[in-house]
Design a protein around this nucleic acid. Sequence first.
DNA 1: TATTGTTATACTCTATAACTATA
DNA 2: TATAGTTATAGAGTATAACAATA
Lengths: 125, 125
Amino acid sequence: MRIARRLRLERAEGDVSDPQLSVLFTLWKEGPQTPSALADAERVTPPSMNRTVNALVGAGLATRGSAPDDGRKVLIAATNAGVEVARETKRRRMIWFSRQLERLDDSERAALDIAAPILRGLADA
Amino acid sequence: MRIARRLRLERAEGDVSDPQLSVLFTLWKEGPQTPSALADAERVTPPSMNRTVNALVGAGLATRGSAPDDGRKVLIAATNAGVEVARETKRRRMIWFSRQLERLDDSERAALDIAAPILRGLADA
DNA sequence: TATTGTTATACTCTATAACTATA
DNA sequence: TATAGTTATAGAGTATAACAATA
């Protein structure tokens, strides 16, 4: 939990909040999504996600578009600026983590290498 | 980060928010603290911490007291009810984590045993 | 009628700026 | 003057309830 907290501080410059950033990552990795899908992914209610989407759209980091098949649906997509924020944040986090790893010796890095997939499994359980 | 997020869901019954809970843990583990010390510990501004403290005091989970040496200072302390919330939350998190560990085999548990102190070191760096 | 999205309203956490009280 | 705490005000995230539009 302490590592997660520290890592969260490493992000792109600007006023993008944590929930906004999380949505940008989803849009970046998985492409345009409906508000409902985003709400489910973030485990948040639709009105709450609507607000986050409004902030992203207002900041020029995402756009609202229509779904071709269903007039009720809306598709949220990251703009180039939005993708850039996600990419820059990931870059900074990778840099931070790489620096931490550099301070370890080979056996310590090997231990983390073994533990990583196990921890990943715990998160999904 | 995914494990931290999942673990955060395991908490005592009631309306104690995440920041409030974090403060209760600090008070429980380290005893009474000034608002400024709590603000530093949570990496939050004094007004923000003041509000969280107000919520805890209002809920009967903490008290405001005077510092004997300096009339400006205030000492926040957890009440018995506050300690109980912290203890119960820790208990639930331990239970959750124990259940996850049960699903692993001996070699996997051994791998995490080796990795744990290394990860702890990363968080402090 | 059911689903998707949004608006209305309210509460908490967050911050900056300004104010009070004590050293 | 400097420090500790608080209040004032404002913005963002969260929720539930209610509303609009489309299937």
